[in-house]
Design a protein around this nucleic acid. Structure first.
Lengths: 113, 113
DNA sequence: CCTCGGTAGCTTGTTATGCAAGCTATATGG
DNA sequence: CCATATAGCTTGCATAACAAGCTACCGAGG
């Protein structure tokens, strides 16, 4: 060990990914693979298909998103996930919480007691 | 149900707590209960004893901290955890990673594509 | 002496999450 | 008919946070 800088990424992500997905859905409805491809280009937020689908299923079950099937011009049908009002509220809450945590963390790293 | 705004805190924390603890230890060596008490006053970073001790054990096993027993003026002996050079490097790496993730997240929430 | 409350460290069992690796199904092209 | 790409999803594993409990040390009162 002594390294593990690679494993660190996967720890931090926990929970943050939900916020990232909700944030992306706030722009417009999207389908799973699109989310995976998008997040792959955002350092620290890369996600795999095996992670995003259970996450989306959880969000649907919680009523944060609704789903709609649409045809694709180039392949199998796509399942679009759209944010509900409840989902948007959740996004707001989580976003605020993240800021709180980030601020608390910044305080610690600056040596505030 | 469907809500769980309370459960959200516990998701985000995952991994971030390690960064918080390393940050606190960067100031001066501390013992477990002291960390619990300190973090209890930092919104979003509250931690329980059942979380901090396994975390400290992991850090010790990874060589990020060393431990020293010291007498207490008011109770049982205390086990002080001090950051090693390796631990400080880990702190730096994790701190940078957090900033990266925070920036990526901020980008998403601002609607950047 | 002996119990009680407070301090401190740690363990156990549960739950949840992220991930790799698969599996299924649809469309297109050879 | 089969290969490839796209898209959705499931399974099994590892890890982490937490609640609840356990042990042990100390000082004060009974």
């Amino acid at each position: 060990m002594s390294e593990g800088s690679g494993s660190w990424g996967s720890q931090l992500r926990k929970g943050v990914l939900e916020l990232a997905v909700l944030g992306l859905l706030a722009g417009e409805p999207r389908y799973g693979s699109s989310l995976v491809d998008d997040l792959a280009g955002r350092p620290g937020l890369a996600i795999t298909a095996g992670t995003v689908y259970p996450l989306l299923a959880r969000l649907a079950k919680a009523g944060s998103v609704t789903t709609t099937w649409r045809e694709s011009p180039v392949g199998p049908p796509r399942k679009y996930y759209a944010l509900t009002d409840s989902g948007r509220r959740r996004l707001d809450v989580m976003s605020q919480e993240f800021d709180t945590v980030a601020a608390a963390l910044a305080g610690i790293l600056k040596g505030e007691s």
